[in-house]
Computed example of a mutant assay.
Amino acid sequence: MITPSAVLVAVLSAAPPLPSPAGWPLEPPFSVVRGFDPPARDWLAGHRGVDLLAGAPGGAPGGAVLAGAEGIVTFAGPVFTRGVVTISHGAYRTTYEPVLPLVRPGARVVAGQRIGTLAAGPSHCAPATCLHWGLRHGAAYLDPLGLPAPPPIILLPLGP
């Protein structure tokens, strides 16, 4: 018997591999302040990406926003009150907002290339400024935290 979960596993396993090499869209230090929380149904509320708080507490407007992976810019401009950059990575797309874009549609970018500047303004982290980073495969939203390699672990001494 084929169950809905078996079909979902088959569909996900058939997806092409994530773009590579991949990296983080902000330079350290940053923290994940809100994780991926997909809705139970497409039309319900959820959080279809992650929010990254850049720099010092309160966010760091003006910081560099970097391409998470190699690809082609398919959109760079305003969506309502926020600047958005979308990059196509073959079957996948990443989105970055709020951003003052430094790239134009059609531009080829490499992982780690500066694509814009983190913009102040309305965000999920208000009154702080954070980057909302999304990942899609077709119509399905995915957790973008699965895209980059883990950040390096830095060990610090316990004493002075």
Rank of each mutant, 00 (worst) to 15 (best):
M1P: 10
M1N: 10
M1G: 14
I2V: 14
P4E: 09
P4S: 11
P4D: 12
A10K: 04
V11R: 13
L12F: 11
A15D: 12
L18P: 00
P19T: 04
P19K: 06
P21R: 10
G23C: 08
P25T: 01
L26K: 03
V32H: 04
R34F: 06
G35W: 02
F36W: 05
D37A: 15
G46T: 00
R48L: 08
V50P: 00
L52D: 02
L52V: 04
L53K: 01
L53F: 01
A56Y: 00
A67G: 10
E70V: 01
I72G: 14
A76N: 06
A76Q: 05
P78K: 07
V79Y: 03
R82C: 07
G83L: 03
T86L: 15
T86F: 11
S88R: 11
S88L: 09
H89M: 11
G90Y: 03
G90M: 10
T94E: 13
P98D: 14
V99L: 12
P101E: 13
P101R: 04
P101D: 12
L102R: 15
R104D: 13
R104C: 11
G106W: 09
A107P: 00
V109N: 11
V109S: 12
G112E: 07
Q113D: 15
R114S: 10
T117W: 05
L118K: 00
A120T: 03
G121P: 05
G121N: 02
G121C: 02
G121E: 05
S123T: 06
S123K: 03
A126D: 15
C130H: 03
G134Y: 00
L135N: 07
R136F: 13
Y141P: 09
D143Q: 13
L147H: 04
P148Y: 07
P148R: 02
P150L: 11
I153T: 13
L155N: 09
L155R: 07
L156I: 06
L156G: 10
L158T: 05
